[in-house]
């Protein structure tokens, strides 16, 4: 077992995991993702409007995790594929998020590459498939 997130806890974060539901701070106007209790930019705002992020962004940095370096719930995936890429993406709306990259280009991943979020199976725990987002090259 790696990062254990219970089924009810996972379910509670479904809007952000499935639909990239973020929030715009009514005090400073900046977009927080994932949702926060207090705006992480102005650190005073506690009122938010819901926004759905576009899922479009650029690769800020990346890596390719090799078989031996994966967390337990991904070790089978790493064993099957040999390795899997992970990217840090700067979204159009500002926030940066980490996720896996699917269909990586043959010529290699580069910083600045344009990507978009796609809905994918992430891993399985307690008999329930956990879905969420990954990125793919545009």
């Amino acid at each position: 077992m790696g990062a254990h997130i219970s089924i009810p806890m996972y379910r509670r974060t479904v809007p952000q995991r499935y639909r990239l539901a973020g929030q715009r701070c009514t005090a400073c106007g900046r977009v927080n993702f994932p949702p926060k209790a207090v705006c992480r930019y102005c650190r005073t705002g506690t009122g938010f409007d819901s926004v759905r992020l576009s899922g479009r962004g650029t690769v800020y940095s990346y890596t390719v995790i090799a078989g031996g370096g994966a967390p337990p719930e991904f070790s089978e995936e790493a064993r099957c594929k040999g390795s899997y890429p992970v990217v840090l993406v700067e979204l159009e709306e500002g926030p940066r998020i980490i996720a896996q990259l699917v269909d990586p280009p043959e010529e290699g991943i580069t910083v600045g590459m344009k990507v978009e979020a796609v809905f994918r199976r992430i891993y399985e725990e307690e008999g329930v498939i956990r879905y969420g987002f990954k990125f793919r090259p545009v």
Partner: peptide
């Protein structure tokens, strides 16, 4: 798993990242 618990469990570890991969992204940047 014990080492990864020093990262953000929800947002980093549960998405397939580990400490080597976080610092590897720092290196590539």
């Amino acid at each position: 798993t014990g080492l990864a618990s020093a990262a953000d469990a929800d947002l980093e570890v549960s998405l397939g990242a580990t400490f080597p991969s976080l610092f590897a992204m720092i290196a590539n940047r």
